[in-house]
Design a protein around this nucleic acid. Structure first.
Lengths: 244, 244
DNA sequence: ACCTGAACACCGTTCAAGT
DNA sequence: ACCTGAACACCGTTCAAGT
């Protein structure tokens, strides 16, 4: 302990009393901080795409070694959570009442989806991470508010946020995977379907390729959200009786 | 070309005319093949977990170098697709009519979800890859059949399979992420919510932590599937009028 | 022809050592 | 005290070379 104090005092001597020349000449390298790291991450994503964002590349962007990042960020998961929340700040989350709750819900969900889809791997991260920042809370706040004004119970509203945001996130993840050639494309799928055994898959062969191609992407995603909303409005109690 | 032929002929001389001793003594190393690779992958997953499955570890399991795998498998994505389809063979996909279509749908979706959730990272892969194999088609076949017998149109059925399976997959991915400590746990979330600004998030603070904790996991996932089904049954045309 | 050793170009994370 | 070079323990994929 005493040794530590002595050492600290000694350090005062070593500390530069004025800004060193190199600092003044290269103001391009700002002091590290959580915010600076997230900023740099955003820059890397914008410039090279989210799949290029790694701890090492981020360190290079900040002109240090990767070890330095771990002073401010626990791990990659935490960085992603931070990043998503920051990105969420771009969302328009106002509701003046000019739009119906249903239209507003459509808009905020597809905005959110588009935001994640633009940044590829981020949608993936969002599925695994609760981006527990103020901006994410803003988003949840708006969705709950819209649901309550649609007349659903508080319990249903609580459950519905999860369902709606999960759908939006999963759609973004799926969409980005297929947009780049990471997954297979639709040609492979229709091929598989064409080669399907009519005895083993009678219903599918009857429907044909329409399963994958029916409607545009936009139509389908609008339909999905409407379906979700309708299901939420049907609510418990009003659940249809099961008939065999 | 001529050189190649000469070389090939020369190779006949080099080829062992009988099984070499080492082959007969160690029948533990079977010939490589697509099927053998998928088998080995399954073994690795069962023994060490899906997150330990890498090309290199798989090669070790098969007692070769990683390069050898690329003779039979294009890349990691293709391997995952193959693997998921193989796993899907475990699913019970029969329907004798003793169960109602709704109950059967519940069962097949949670079976599918549980299958993916048991193998952690696999759910993730399933979200990005269309596991275009016969077993996946069996699954789609059953879901479409159930939907049609529920009385929905072919168009709606086609769109609904996507929605239902996407939900099941996303739930599995989310669940596995939170089950292991990969993401944060719920304590962090309630903490975030407790620290939320009541002015900025009035609706959320009013609802409190119930947003995350309301109901058990099982209740919530049953509710989600019922909600999806209700929405699908509501269908287009019967869409409720939007009221502001 | 079929298979693979070795290399290429990367990762996330830790920790001893520097100032 | 704060920061980081260098190392640890890995990755997926390719390609020249071996038999």
């Amino acid at each position: 302990m005493f040794v530590t104090i002595v050492f600290d005092v000694a350090m005062i001597w070593f500390m530069p009393r004025t800004e060193p020349v190199s600092r003044r000449e290269r103001p391009a390298k700002p002091a590290l901080s959580r915010a600076a790291i997230v900023d740099a991450a955003l820059r890397v994503i914008e410039r090279e795409g989210a799949h290029k964002l790694t701890m090492r590349r981020l360190a290079t962007e900040l002109d240090t070694g990767p070890a330095s990042l771990y002073v401010y960020v626990k791990n990659t998961t935490e960085l992603n959570a931070q990043l998503i929340d920051r990105l969420l700040a771009e969302l328009d989350l106002s509701w003046d009442g000019a739009e119906s709750w249903r239209e507003r819900l459509h808009r905020v969900l597809s905005d959110y989806s588009a935001l994640l889809a633009r940044r590829a791997e981020l949608a993936n991260a969002a599925l695994h991470v609760w981006p527990d920042g103020p901006n994410y809370l803003d988003l949840v706040e708006l969705v709950v508010r819209l649901l309550l004004s649609a007349g659903v119970s508080e319990q249903t509203a609580a459950r519905s946020v999860d369902l709606l945001l999960q759908h939006a996130t999963a759609s973004a993840a799926e969409w980005t995977a297929h947009a780049r050639e990471e997954g297979q494309d639709i040609a492979d799928l229709t091929g598989t379907l064409a080669g399907a055994d009519p005895t083993r898959h009678p219903t599918l062969t009857a429907l044909g390729a329409s399963i994958f191609t029916e409607g545009s992407h936009l139509e389908r995603s609008r339909w999905a959200i409407d379906t979700l909303i309708d299901g939420i409005l049907a609510g418990p109690g009003r659940r249809r009786a099961t008939k065999p």
